[in-house]
Design a protein around this nucleic acid. Structure first.
Length: 591
RNA sequence: GGAGCUGUAGUUAAGUUGGUUAUAACGCCGGCCUGUCACGCCGGAGGCCGCCGGUUCGAGUCCGGUCAGCUCCGCCA
């Protein structure tokens, strides 16, 4: 029954034929999307990557071909030879690109059958992620997924074109590389030839691209897979793709301008949207003050407002004793019910908040559990600072800056969604600059690099490394789009003595620095040029362009939240022989 | 490591206060059908109610545990 392709050659794809092909003899190949068997007349919608074409099996055209076509089922693979003709008057389907024509079959071949698919390959069918991932090859046949992959391809192509035009050279760096102490948990690969030694998969090609600058390569880029063995999120996979680039003899502005050009090309090539350059810039401090997060979604206002000074002597101890008190005013938010406020309270507790204070502003009074603790002057000052109007609701957070900002910053996003404040189709880019160089690692009780240990401090802050590390600023920059961090980079340290100071400030001993990063500090000693660069999260960018809510939608074969592949069942156990070759022995599970 | 949501036919869902044979739509199978396009009409098959245990005369329903998928916190230089 199943036939070979023989000498049949495809002449067109399934979104190609139109009125200009009338009377042409064509050959199409693809999958049966729908079958409409009228007995005397059979229609199928033939699908390939590009689209659908209606095929008609008619006894008048070829009685045997029509008779045999009764076996066709969903996802059978067929080759069709036939004539292009107009559909009868009134039978056109304007919802299809090819809806005005059809191909009447002269001859056809069944190239393969298909088991009944576990789910319908239609957009309207909402299938569980589990099934979609298990049968990913079927999921990818769906139009939306196919379009996502295509858009990703177009995006990559446009970025390569731009970077090539701008004098960048694409260089590949090792995937089997060295484990480094800072940063994310490494994926390890045991070395068979070197018992007890391990490679790590790169978290990013950071050190290699710096070495390429020292190699005089001047402008490097790579579309590169990166690996981080950390827990997954909707926008985090253990392997993901970076657009990684580095430039010699540059300052921040050159990297930023190049990046903006790249975004302009990308958005033009994929969604045909012009971008206004340059993008606005905001300091880290400003972002934290106004938005509570270092990746502010600037598509809507709903700013956080600092009211610490107003309540610092308040009777309300919770406010008076707090390091930071901030408020967020929602215009006409007073219609929130008690139940809804309870839900929001539960929401902020996720971020470590103890509770959520609120005030509903009425015409002549405040309805609030905390109003009785505030005196007239405090009320008046709050009223003025927050520009309160009847019908508003105000939420407060008091406590440590970390928790206040996290709770209120995330509450801001939640409220925007709730009150439908986020304009659709808007693309708000913003650069975040002047990051702190260090952050305090509570667990390890030491300073950790905010960006990474190779980020250059501001020259004027060099002396702070030893005296007041918390005040030192980094020459780092993040690009944020609609509240997503889509890229980040910095000007790097290119002098060995400054790099040594940096390691020292991070509590990395001279010995350890030599063992872990000796090759870099050595290289810095041989005429390293000033350099800087940036890396973009390609998956997140494409996700936003596809209006998807998870990067799984733009990765062909993603992992589940537990880091497994439902399609291949990886990771799996391996035979003991294989472990022995690698000089590995599994620890007793009960130990 | 932690919190939450979900799990019933191939799929998506409904299933009341614990009570007879677990519903529906789509899909699938058979039949009819020459202008459909998510074709239509007639008929049919299809269930370890995620899994294990408990409560009960009786569990899809209540309780405990466990597994899986998703969302989030921690984590992600």
């Amino acid at each position: 029954m199943i036939q070979t392709l023989g000498d049949w050659v495809r002449s067109h794809h399934c979104a190609q034929l139109n009125g200009s092909h009338l009377g042409a003899q064509v050959c199409l190949m693809g999958w049966v999307q729908y079958r409409r068997d009228h007995g005397g007349l059979i229609f199928i919608d033939l699908r390939d990557r590009e689209g659908l074409t209606q095929i008609v099996f008619s006894p008048e055209a070829n009685a045997q071909a029509h008779q045999e076509a009764h076996v066709l089922r969903s996802e059978y693979v067929v080759a069709i030879q036939g004539l292009v003709r107009n559909r009868p008057r009134g039978m056109e389907n304007d919802s299809l690109v090819t809806g005005r024509i059809e191909v009447v079959v002269q001859d056809w071949k069944l190239l393969n059958t298909s088991r009944t698919p576990p789910f319908l390959l239609e957009e309207r069918v909402d299938v569980s992620d589990h099934l979609r991932l298990k049968y990913r090859y079927l999921d990818l046949r769906r139009k939306k997924m196919s379009q996502n992959l295509k858009l990703r391809h177009l995006g990559l192509q446009s970025i390569r074109n731009l970077l090539n035009d701008q004098g960048f050279v694409e260089v590949e760096t090792p995937v089997l590389t060295k484990s480094t102490p800072e940063g994310a948990r490494d994926f390890l690969v045991p070395s068979r030839q070197n018992p007890g030694h391990f490679f790590a998969l790169p978290q990013s090609p950071q050190l290699f691209k710096q070495l390429l600058m020292i190699s005089g390569q001047d402008r490097y880029y790579q579309i590169v897979r990166c690996f981080r063995d950390e827990d997954l999120r909707a926008d985090r996979q253990p392997e993901f793709t970076q657009i990684d680039l580095e430039m010699a003899f540059v300052q921040e502005d050159q990297v930023i301008e190049l990046s903006e050009l790249m975004m302009q090309e990308l958005f033009a090539a994929t969604v045909n949207t012009p971008l206004q350059l340059p993008f606005p810039r905001m300091t880290y401090d400003e972002a934290m003050e106004t938005y509570g997060l270092d990746r502010p979604d600037t598509r809507f206002e709903l700013h956080l407002q600092n009211v610490t000074d107003i309540v610092k002597n308040s009777q309300f101890k919770l406010f008076a004793q707090a390091d930071l008190v901030k408020a967020i005013r929602v215009e006409a938010g007073g219609r929130l019910t008690r139940k809804e406020i309870d839900d929001l309270t539960a929401f902020v507790k996720i971020f470590g908040a103890k509770g959520l204070a609120w005030i509903k502003v009425k015409d002549d009074e405040w309805q609030s559990p905390i109003a009785k603790f505030l005196n007239e002057q405090e009320k008046q000052e709050l009223h003025n600072r927050l520009r309160l109007q009847s019908g508003d609701i105000v939420f407060f957070q008091a406590g440590s800056p970390e928790i206040v900002n996290a709770a209120l910053g995330n509450l801001r996003l939640k409220l925007a969604e709730w009150f439908d404040l986020i304009p659709e189709n808007r693309l708000d880019f913003v650069w975040i600059t002047d990051f702190p160089l260090f952050e305090w690692d509570q667990e390890e009780k030491r300073w950790a690099a905010c960006h990474h240990p190779f980020t250059s401090p501001r020259e004027t802050d060099l002396h702070l490394l030893e005296t007041a590390p918390e005040q030192a600023r980094a020459r780092a920059y993040d690009l944020v789009l609609n509240g997503h961090e889509i890229g980040g980079g910095s000007i790097r340290i290119h002098q060995a003595d400054i790099q040594a100071k940096m390691f020292q400030a991070l509590g990395i001993s001279g010995e350890e620095a030599e063992a872990k990063f000796g090759f870099l500090t050595d290289a810095l000693g041989y005429g390293a040029p000033p350099h800087g660069g940036i890396a973009f999260g390609l998956d997140r960018l494409i996700m936003i362009l596809c209006k998807a809510s998870s990067i799984r939608e733009v990765i062909a074969f993603p992992k589940t939240q537990k880091g497994t592949c439902l399609l291949t069942d990886a990771p799996t156990e391996v035979p003991t022989r294989q472990l022995r070759e690698l000089n590995l022995r599994l620890r007793d599970k009960t130990a």
